[in-house]
Design a protein around this nucleic acid. Structure first.
Lengths: 291, 291
DNA sequence: GCCGCCGATACCGTACGGGTATCGTCGCAC
DNA sequence: GTGCGACGATACCCGTACGGTATCGGCGGC
């Protein structure tokens, strides 16, 4: 009954699927099956019902899941506290500039309250790197907005914001209840500045390369929209500027505020940050800011 | 940072001596040294000061010790709760008949309150086996009185009771403030019934084989003492019977009430029982009963 | 009925944990 | 001052157990 085994168990209990759990644990499925079987032998009871229909927790498994989660959490806290005592408790958090919102504020407050001895370093980035330096190892964890290249990263969604078309108030679309991407097909679009992450650009351009006036930053779209017929996209609840309108885009996937870290990074400060982030974004009304 | 490693660390922190800690862990010293060194690497700080004068905890080590103890305790509770859910939470406790005292009552109460789902089975034994069946595997843990053959057992002392000489009230020794074993050298001693544990007999006979009237059970010494000049030993605070006196024996090691279990038995129910026992005997006045 | 999904089984190689032997260092005793 | 003993560190060996690949078995769906 080692912590490693319990982490395996929790992964399977979360996924209710041995293959996916193994992938999440960066291992292959057979050793995972074996480890769970050994755990069941040790406990003296089955933890999962393996039916052809799928995997389900037994009552004993449910008890173990509760206890194991609590134990693993405490193990994380142990590591944080010891790291704090050793003076090595440092976490570098990357923020995408415009993600600053009440959720982020609550997150920062809650995290500093939870781990007062932890030194939190902030690194703010622009659209050239929505991962805020995760791939380059410049930060431990990133609070940012998708989409971006997620290879090698683990990503947890904190919030999904619906997206709307940003047009001039006198645009024919401005009065509509909703629009589709096809309605914008023949328009000129705002582009992103040189160096903007291609995945990000592709998303905010409706999935296709576009032509249009280049704007220096997302926030300046409002000036650029003075060109008649030019469109962009923005968050649906974006605060309105004079002369502009936002119309819901019903066939765009929502924009996701996420927390991300390098896959396989077991730093408990990160895990604690992620848990805190999820909690901070669960309560409180969302506000925002993006293109 | 697995539980095994933390158990190693706690053992070293308890003993402040790598060799003794290794012995307690039933392993040799080199792998233990290596494991601690790996843990220090993982933590990123020294946990012990190895000075020629001895081993001492560093401040970081002290923090880890607190946290590790708490985590290991919680891990034990996890195992107990899961065992209870699985219906395999059974513990067999051996009692030496005359050990029944307020401490044992408090222990039983506290343990049942702590683990209501655990099935506690009682096995009461006589002096033929002060280990109450531990060596034979008949019980998981024994609440008994030493001394006995401790090979293969782990023993924790709960209480140490001073011992006195039991003589007739009209015996010359009865008026003394204290006696030594030498004062009893030429007396006839009460023997123990056939089959009584030899280690036990040796202790209660002052370390030497004795001759004397055979008594059926320890409690009946009081009848037997009617023979003039015959002596026995008993607990100093033993309730007095008419016509008898107890005189403190100042060169006898005290009689120890102990809890014992088979070395290497990692059953968390046992560990919890032991912790409960130590707590139960720490508060409350001792009373007793033995020869 | 065949294929595909998914967990179990079989088998293999390696890495790590635990063993013995020995060393280095310091304190102490004579 | 020298020799010895205590104790943790180091070196090296070995077995086990963990993680990998390949494959099986069983059930469900197209």
């Amino acid at each position: 009954m080692e912590l490693r085994t319990l982490r395996y168990f929790v992964a399977v209990a979360d996924e209710l699927h041995f293959g996916r759990a193994a992938a999440r644990l960066h291992m292959s499925q057979p050793p995972l099956s074996r480890a769970i079987k050994q755990l069941e032998t040790e406990v003296g009871a089955a933890l999962f019902d393996r039916s052809p229909a799928g995997v389900a927790l037994t009552p004993v498994g449910a008890v173990l899941l509760d206890e194991a989660r609590a134990l693993l959490d405490q193990a994380d806290r142990l590591r944080v506290r010891v790291a704090a005592a050793a003076g090595t408790a440092v976490i570098t958090v990357g923020f995408l500039g415009d993600t600053a919102d009440p959720g982020a504020t609550r997150l920062a407050d809650a995290y500093r309250r939870l781990h007062p001895q932890v030194e939190v370093r902030i690194r703010e980035t622009d659209l050239t790197d929505p991962t805020c330096g995760l791939h380059a190892g410049l930060v431990d964890v990133a609070l940012t907005r998708g989409p971006f290249d997620e290879t090698g990263l683990t990503v947890r969604e904190l919030r999904a914001d619906p997206v709307g078309a940003l047009v001039r108030a006198d645009d024919p679309l401005a009065g509509r209840d909703s629009v589709k991407l096809a309605d914008l097909a023949d328009r000129r679009w705002f582009l992103f500045p040189e160096g903007t992450d291609p995945v990000w650009q592709s998303y905010w351009n409706g999935g296709a390369p576009r032509e249009g006036p280049v704007v220096r930053a997302v926030q300046e779209c409002r000036q650029a929209v003075l060109w008649n017929g030019t469109v962009g996209m923005t968050l649906l609840d974006h605060e309105q500027a004079d002369g502009l309108a936002v119309v819901p885009l019903i066939d765009m996937p929502p924009s996701r505020v996420v927390v991300a870290w390098n896959e396989g990074d077991t730093n408990p400060l990160i895990r604690s940050f992620v848990r805190t982030a999820i909690a901070a974004y669960q309560d409180g009304a969302p506000t925002s800011g993006a293109a």
